[in-house]
Nucleic acid binder design. Structure first.
Length: 207
DNA sequence: TGCCAGGCCCTCTTTAGGGCCTT
C-alpha cells in the first residue's frame, strides 16, 4: 500500500470537545508522490460560524446554509479513504475532528486510520526553519501555491506537496528507497539524532 | 468581541511553565 490521503478540515473552532464542528473537508490521495484523486466538500453541521472564523477561512454562514449535511459528507469521506492511512499538518487537530465527526455516524469497522503529521516530521527534518506553520514551510521549500490559504483543498494540496518533499528528503538523506507512511509515523516521535538508527531498524525489520 | 483544547517541545525542566500549531 503506497497510497496515502492528505486531509485538511476547516472548522468552527479548535475543539470538538467544546462543541466545534467541521465546515469543510478536503482529501488528496497521493500515490508515489503523485496526486491520483481528490475529495472536497463544504458541510452543514447546523452550527453558526462566528465572524472571526468567517474572515479566517472565507467560509460564510450563507455558504454552509446550502451545503450538504455533515453526516452525508463525512460518510462520503470515509468511503473515499477506506483502507488508506492519512496525513495532516498538525495532525492531532484533524484527527480529533475526523474522529468526532465520524463518531456521530455510529460505529464502523476500519474507520480509524493511522495519522502521520507533517508538522512533527518537519520539526525533526528541518531544524533550521523558524516557523512550522504550513505556509511558512511552503515558503521555505518554495512549494507551489494552491489557492486561498485556510480553505481545505488549498491547504491539503500544500500539505501534500510538503509530504512529498519530506519523503524525497528522507530517501536522499538516509539512502533509502522509500519513506512509507508507517515509517513516517515512527519518525515523527523520534528525536532528530536518533533518526538514522530508527530508519535503519525499520528497514531491517522488513528484511 | 474574543476566547475556548490538546499535544508536542524547549528550558531558566522533570514536584513546571509557556510557546507553537491547528480553526
Amino acid at each position: 500500500m503506497s497510497v496515502v490521503g492528505v486531509i485538511d478540515f476547516e472548522t468552527t473552532g479548535l475543539s470538538p470537545a467544546m462543541g466545534d464542528r467541521a465546515t469543510e473537508v478536503a482529501i488528496v490521495l497521493l500515490d508515489g508522490g503523485q496526486v491520483v484523486d481528490r475529495f472536497q466538500s463544504l458541510m452543514n453541521a447546523g452550527v453558526r460560524i462566528n465572524a472571526f472564523i468567517e474572515q479566517y477561512t472565507g467560509i460564510s454562514n450563507e455558504m454552509i446554509r446550502t451545503a450538504p449535511p455533515a453526516a452525508e459528507v463525512m460518510a462520503d469521506a470515509r468511503r473515499f479513504v477506506r483502507g488508506v492511512p492519512l496525513v495532516a499538518h498538525n495532525a492531532s487537530f484533524d484527527q480529533r475532528f475526523w474522529a468526532a465527526e465520524l463518531e456521530r455516524l455510529g460505529p464502523d469497522e476500519g474507520a480509524d486510520p493511522p495519522f502521520a503529521c507533517t508538522m512533527l516530521l518537519s520539526r525533526r527534518l528541518y531544524p533550521q526553519v523558524g516557523s512550522y506553520r504550513l505556509q511558512s514551510l511552503a515558503s521555505f521549500h518554495a512549494l507551489p501555491s494552491a489557492g486561498r490559504a485556510h480553505r481545505a483543498m488549498a491547504d491539503a494540496e500544500v500539505a501534500a506537496s510538503l509530504l512529498s518533499r519530506i519523503q524525497q528528503d528522507i530517501q536522499r538523506d538516509y539512502q533509502v528507497d522509500a519513506a512509507p507512511h508507517e515509517l513516517l509515523v515512527k519518525l515523527q516521535r523520534t528525536q532528530r539524532k536518533a533518526l538514522p538508527k530508527a530508519i535503519e531498524a525499520y528497514f531491517d525489520a522488513l528484511r
